[in-house]
Nucleic acid binder design. Sequence first.
DNA 1: TCCATATCATTCACAACTCGAATGATTACG
DNA 2: CGTAATCATTCGAGTTGTGAATGATATGGA
Lengths: 145, 145
Amino acid sequence: MTDVKGPEELGSTVAYRLGALGSVAESRFAARVEPLGIKPKHAGLLAALAAGGAPSQQDLAARLGVAPSLVVSLADHLEACGAVERTRDSRDRRRQVLTLTREGRGLLARCAAAARELDDELTASMTGPQVAALREALELVGRGL
Amino acid sequence: MTDVKGPEELGSTVAYRLGALGSVAESRFAARVEPLGIKPKHAGLLAALAAGGAPSQQDLAARLGVAPSLVVSLADHLEACGAVERTRDSRDRRRQVLTLTREGRGLLARCAAAARELDDELTASMTGPQVAALREALELVGRGL
DNA sequence: TCCATATCATTCACAACTCGAATGATTACG
DNA sequence: CGTAATCATTCGAGTTGTGAATGATATGGA
């Protein structure tokens, strides 16, 4: 009853607002990494590689929430850029192990820098503690999958 | 300085995480409103109509961050559903005024209910204050556009 | 050992989304 | 009064992502 059941009900929802803001965040991020020759999903793949052990492409697909076939084309492009290398797993030769090259790490670092710049833009009207709260909140949501 | 400048730099970014979480939030929301015969953008249009005066479709396009031509097809579908009505603006007969019908308001209410259910799911592992902080943070980011 | 089944990466065709340019009607301005 | 601007709409095209085949390899049971 403290709720305002007014017309903006949907807009005050986490689910909807997250989706709406997410799409503008993604397109702005895309604009920033476009000069680097990649798209947000490529950056995501790079980050996943930097984060984890040596997972299969199927694992990567699951982490990124995309189809395995998409990981193939993402990896194709990154390999063409010289950012990753494909090597057959000697223990299971069906698997293709993706490893970051030195250039790949550099590319990822530039993506992260671009993202940080964008963060400054997105949070320009917020105070330090507010930004920190946002980071923590997003972290928590992500943890719950 | 509390930042870990490690390999997960990108993932700790607001821009990237917002984009990633946004896409899963949107797809889950899409799954929930799909039985209602609409997609997230339709819901967004309904909410925009409920929120504002009687804006032109161009205004709506700008608010939603999409091309005007997309608003046409969104409105087409909603009109077919009986959720909105098109009437020519008597003062400027180029403009088409979209108005919510009673059914449209009901549909929007169901979308909001679906979004609230999804909120419960997304924030299941969070405490009340944490959820409130998230809502406020998203609100602030959205305000800064 | 050998065969059936399952898993992996990959390719390919297709559906869905969204945009931008043309179109026609109407309005605003000089 | 005519020229340019604005609105909604249509249409064609580009991009993105998916799911179903394919071929290679692995696994487990008879």
